[in-house]
Each structure stands twice: as structure tokens, then as C-alpha cells.
């Protein structure tokens, strides 16, 4: 939800500084400001690792609370959503990237924030987005032999209902 004019976003100081720094250092990144006072960057997946590394090293985004994927099945894309936080200044940033559904791969962020290792395992488990270069891409909740990715919108549970071992009355 990108807002420009309608409401004044309640940005905190850290976020404002980061926004200025990004506009100054990286004019091609096109930062936006969300309704909730977060800087939002939308990057192509090929730039993802470079941008993430720059955000961590140059802008102090050392903490990644959340990384997830939304399945926009009608538009044929997954949207990667990475929430970043600067523990020292309180700056908030959202990193977005579109992944085509028919080629659901993405460069891994596990080398940038170690916590993404498990975030990405969860995404792989639930959405089947393959993270290139991930050190340990196993399913995290479901068993390895589970077929399908349950949080995809087109997931159909192909299993027959479980038989019930109860005597009929």
C-alpha cells in the first residue's frame, strides 16, 4: 500500500534518515513509503542479494524479523516480503520482490541474515519457492515425502479421507 499524498506517514526518525540515505546513495532503487511509515523497496530477484547486503552493511538493517511469500495466483506471481529492522535507530524497511510462479526460484538471503535460513526453509515447505544457494533447504514442518505446497492457492489435497477405525453403530 503505497501512499504519497493522502495521509502523512508516521515515520520515525531512523526510517526518515534511511529514506534520505537511500535516495541519496541509490537513486535507482525507487524507495516508497507505506501507509505505516515503512520504507518499501521493490527489487528484481536478480538484485535481491546485492540490495540486501547493501541494506545490512551500509544502512544498518541487522535484524530480519520476517520473511515470507504471498501467492498472487491470478497475477501469476509470488511476492517475497522481507521485513527489516535496524535495532539501533529503529528504522523499518520492507523489501519486496516478485517471483514468477512458473519459475519459483529466488536467490537466498541466508548469507545475509542467518535467520533467513529458517524463514526460507518455511517458505520452501509451504510455497515451494526454491532458494538458490541455500545451505540446508529441507522442509521444516512437513515430511520430506509430502507432495505439494499447501499454502499455494492452487494446492489441492489429493489424499483420500482417512478411514476411521470405528465400529458403525
Amino acid at each position: 500500500m503505497v501512499e504519497g499524498d493522502k495521509a502523512q506517514p508516521a515515520m520515525n526518525d531512523g526510517t526518515r534518515q534511511v529514506l534520505e540515505a537511500i535516495r541519496r546513495d541509490h537513486p535507482d532503487w525507487q524507495p516508497e513509503v507505506t501507509r505505516w511509515g515503512e520504507v518499501q523497496l521493490r527489487v528484481g530477484r536478480e538484485d535481491l542479494q546485492a540490495v540486501a547486503r547493501a541494506l545490512r552493511d551500509d544502512h544498518g538493517f541487522n535484524y530480519c524479523p520476517s520473511e515470507t511469500v504471498v501467492d498472487y495466483v491470478k497475477e501469476g506471481r509470488f511476492e517475497l516480503d522481507v521485513r527489516l529492522f535496524n535495532l539501533d535507530t529503529g528504522a523499518k524497511l520492507v523489501l519486496k520482490s516478485d517471483l514468477p510462479r512458473d519459475d519459483a526460484t529466488c536467490p537466498t538471503l541466508a548469507g545475509v541474515w542467518a535467520t533467513c535460513k529458517w524463514h526460507e526453509r518455511e517458505i520452501w515447505d509451504m510455497f515451494g519457492v526454491r532458494f538458490e544457494g541455500h545451505p540446508d533447504l529441507r522442509r521444516v514442518f512437513l515430511s520430506e515425502s509430502f507432495q505439494g505446497y499447501p499454502l499455494r492457492k492452487d494446492f489441492v489435497d489429493a489424499r483420500k479421507p482417512r478411514p476411521r477405525l470405528v465400529r458403525q453403530r
Binding site: R139, S143, F146, A158, R159, K160, R162
Partner: peptide, 17 residues
């Protein structure tokens, strides 16, 4: 069970390797 896309291990509380 017979059916498309059915993996018997899906039914078990199997421990992932």
C-alpha cells in the same frame, strides 16, 4: 490407497529424515 498423487507416507506421522 490407490489414487493419483497419493503417497502412503503422507498418512503416517513419519519423522522427516
Amino acid at each position: 490407497f490407490e489414487g493419483p498423487n497419493v503417497n502412503r507416507w503422507q498418512y503416517l506421522p513419519q519423522t522427516p529424515p
